[in-house]
Computed example of a mutant assay.
Amino acid sequence: MVKQERAARTREGLVHAAASQFDLDGYAGASLVRISKAAGISLGAVTFHFPSKAELAEAVESQGRAQVRATLSRMAVGSAPALEQLGELTLELARLIEQEDTVRAMVRLERERPGRAHWSEIWLPTADELLRRAYDSGELRASAQPEAMSTLVVHLIAGAEITLRRHRAAGTAPSEGAVDLLARIWQLVLTGISARRITPGP
């Protein structure tokens, strides 16, 4: 049992170290040697748990997806109006991008590894359902069709990730966090699409 717990801790540490490396250097730039140094364990121990970089990348993606699903589960119990729930969902996704290495790494790995499913497949069905409910209940203007709004939401989340990554690559600190910035953008959007005043907050 003790060996199993130690192995589980080692595996978890490897996934987090790999997530940080994949996030910073991408799939091609990261190496098992560099990941082993970041995790503080031997290369042999790395390959014992993950015989290839591809398997380690898949473990990182799986962990990132699990975090997104956990966020969706927590939010499923909300009773706020649909449009407000949509705003909260996007802010939570921005928070994950800003704070969780495994989520950022997952998003980058999906771009760099051909044939990978996009993480929007996890959360976009929920966003689409909230948009349909908001439209049917009159929370959205008639011109704010759910299909177009769905595309807008995808662009907002992608923009949050790209903006954060640009600052990280340049080594500069953003003037405000991803969540605060997205909340401000939502306020601007809502003045044009909402039939009533809604203020999503972090």
Rank of each mutant, 00 (worst) to 15 (best):
S36H: 07
L131R: 08
L89T: 15
A170N: 07
R165S: 10
F48Y: 09
G13Q: 14
L140E: 02
S36A: 15
L93A: 03
K37S: 02
T199M: 12
L182K: 01
L190W: 15
P202S: 11
T126A: 09
R141N: 13
E139P: 09
K3Q: 12
S31A: 14
E139C: 06
Q85C: 02
E88K: 04
H167N: 12
L91S: 08
R116N: 08
H155K: 10
V68W: 03
L14E: 01
T47W: 09
A183T: 01
L56R: 04
T126N: 03
D101Q: 10
V2G: 01
P174A: 04
Y135V: 00
G177F: 08
R113C: 11
Y27L: 13
E121V: 14
A80S: 11
L56N: 06
E147D: 15
H49E: 11
L24C: 08
L164I: 05
A117D: 14
K3Y: 06
A38S: 15
A178E: 10
I35Y: 06
L188F: 04
A117H: 10
F48A: 07
G29Y: 14
V68C: 07
A158T: 08
G64P: 07
Q187N: 12
Q67L: 13
V46Y: 06
E5Q: 14
A28Y: 00
A45N: 14
V46I: 07
L83Q: 11
R11Q: 07
A54Y: 01
R9K: 13
V33D: 13
V15G: 12
H49A: 12
G171E: 13
E55D: 04
Q63A: 12
T102G: 05
P51T: 05
H155C: 11
L91C: 15
